[in-house]
Design a protein around this nucleic acid. Sequence first.
DNA 1: GTCTATAATCTGATAGAC
DNA 2: GTCTATCAGATTATAGAC
Lengths: 216, 216
Amino acid sequence: MSEDSGTAAKETTTERIPAALRREQILAAASRVFGERGYSGATTDQVAQAAGISQPYVVRMFGTKENLFLEVVARALDKLMTTFRETLAEHRPADDGDDADPLITRLGAAYVDLIDDRGILLSLMQAFITGHDPVIGAKAREGFLQIYRMLRDEAGFSPETIRDFLANGMLFNTLLAIRLPDIFEDDEAAEELMRCAFRGKLDVVLDASGATWTRS
Amino acid sequence: MSEDSGTAAKETTTERIPAALRREQILAAASRVFGERGYSGATTDQVAQAAGISQPYVVRMFGTKENLFLEVVARALDKLMTTFRETLAEHRPADDGDDADPLITRLGAAYVDLIDDRGILLSLMQAFITGHDPVIGAKAREGFLQIYRMLRDEAGFSPETIRDFLANGMLFNTLLAIRLPDIFEDDEAAEELMRCAFRGKLDVVLDASGATWTRS
DNA sequence: GTCTATAATCTGATAGAC
DNA sequence: GTCTATCAGATTATAGAC
């Protein structure tokens, strides 16, 4: 009868934890929910349930749904930029010659690895697709251009190289959004496209998609 | 005092027109609205206003909002497939040699030209991003794979060629969604990216975006 | 720090008149 | 063929208790 009946997946009695930590939990939940259903498609109640708290508390913590979404997107962008910069830094030492994979390939791999937090990639994509909104749209444009400038000014790529890189990223996001990894092996075209689009990273993608089948 | 005061942009007295024609008007309006705001973000009332009729009539005509969206997406996919097949057919005659642009370039150009009905490209993209939905998601997956198979089986491209083609398409859709064409000349990075991404088709894109500025 | 209750919309859909 | 009226349900946000 105490509050310690940890069998159910969802909390019966919510623990009292520091606001800062709760904030992170909400953001993590929101990232998943917004990533799946988009800004308008997601409800603050869905976020609340995913975080195991009440709906009003979500709103109380972030003021408005829009604020929450903007924070999620800002975090996602930040994570992406940081990941790229780390990859850039790691690459510098062995810069000359063709010792290993070219930088662009490493960045692509780093991008794909972000899939283990689907929310990051999908929330960003959802922000892009909400470009019509005055507030969200402005942030989306800003964010996209920020990535472009980083690839150009910090990584030193040509516009053409960046274009191809971004294009592959958008394709990757789209395949994730339509959940192609979920119908792997169901459809020969789906499998062929995935093998080609995800290259050596197919296993990473499939793992992250919570697939429940064994290797044949 | 009669119903013929054609100065306002929106109808005051709705004309009585054939259902089939009205249906087309609604679909055209819905394509624009859904393309901008997405499935959840758009309301049947917004569609109704864009079509110049009442909200209940929109619902009456298509049963449900979901049905209307599915019809919009099916039409968009159809238009895309048809456009590609026409491009394929036109190419056949002068197939051998490098007489003009390679087929893939022509297909790319045909895709960009679809921008004069933004709704087509954006509605499709909105469908892709709504992949989590059981019904819409299924159609989105199907549609995407249909395009892939066409490019492979009818156009004869390799998976790698198709991947790059689709990737550029997704980038194009994304740039459209974040309305990059609207801030052309406002931001040097935006302009550089657009020139690179849209190649020779920049003017077509800018024209279609209802830009209101004169060439410098 | 977190909840319950609830106000205030908004929105999809139905009924029925003209 | 099209509208007005309207209901039912969903959803963001606020108030206030604990």
